[in-house]
Design a protein around this nucleic acid. Structure first.
Lengths: 146, 146
DNA sequence: GTGCTTGCAAACAGTTTGCAGATAG
DNA sequence: CTATCTGCAAACTGTTTGCAAGCAC
């Protein structure tokens, strides 16, 4: 579990570094992203920000998220349906494990990813740059209670 | 390379089996899906159908695609951005390899998928039901010509 | 004939954009 | 002070839906 405060400082520094202004709205969003354990959606972040900063608009949330995405500090998970999510703790692509019932999302440690990537590259001649690995299923809780 | 005609017959039989009507528009779409080598988008299928059947509407294409998806005969690849695609040859989930430059999509043979799935399941206690494995990169052609 | 299907247009959801006023530096 | 940022509302994109007319069976 990373240090929320230092992650926030890191994000703030990245913005300053690129001459972006640290507005109160952005600070609030950076703190949220730095402290969020899960994989919040844009709408979810918006709701949380409004609680402490009622005048913020959803457009600003999107603008700041896109800013951070361009700086490589936030990963957009890019689900096709209504349920897009962001990951601000680990901006590098990594596998996700999604519960189809309660929508929980985990970050499993998977050692075979590199092997798999290499297998694909060798077989096709592609230069593999990124990936997106999502597993869908039922988490232990939802298996019991279904 | 599967037999297009028998794949078409199979799709048609699936519709009849569920008491769906075989309209000319649906027949045209089934033929397209059965013969399409690649991973066409809804809009692409619509364009091709309009060529031989000018009055067809995009809504009908979507309705039929969703029908086939519910019957498990077509796989929606579910890209988040503008570029959604369908796979009518292999309705089961399988890895895709996407060229970021020319948008070509390949279906690599990957032996490690089952191992990877099992690793994830064992580590987390999830019951893994489905997956979505996409690799992004540059195909051999685009590596040379860039 | 019956009722599923079509095609149109309007509705929809999530995201992006244009712009006038506000504000960080 | 000035250029960037905000917040609103309107625009946009891909997809879905409601409904009257059409047609498969």
């Amino acid at each position: 579990m990373p240090d929320n405060e230092s992650r926030f400082q890191q994000l703030a520094a990245r913005l300053k570094e690129h001459d972006y202004r640290l507005t109160p709205q952005r600070v609030a969003l950076l703190r949220l992203i730095a402290s969020s354990e899960g994989h919040p959606s844009a709408a979810h972040l918006y709701e949380q920000i409004k609680a402490q900063f009622p005048t913020t608009s959803l457009a600003t949330v999107y603008k700041t998220l896109n800013l951070l995405k361009d700086l490589g500090e936030v990963l957009e998970l890019g689900f096709s349906d209504d349920d897009n999510r962001y990951d601000g703790s680990r901006p590098d692509p990594h596998p996700h494990l999604i519960c189809m019932r309660c929508r929980k999302i985990l970050d499993p440690q998977v050692s075979l990813v590199d092997d798999l990537t290499q297998e694909v590259a060798e077989q096709t001649g592609f230069q593999v740059i990124s990936h997106r690995l999502d597993f869908y299923g039922l988490c232990p809780d939802c298996q019991q209670n279904q």
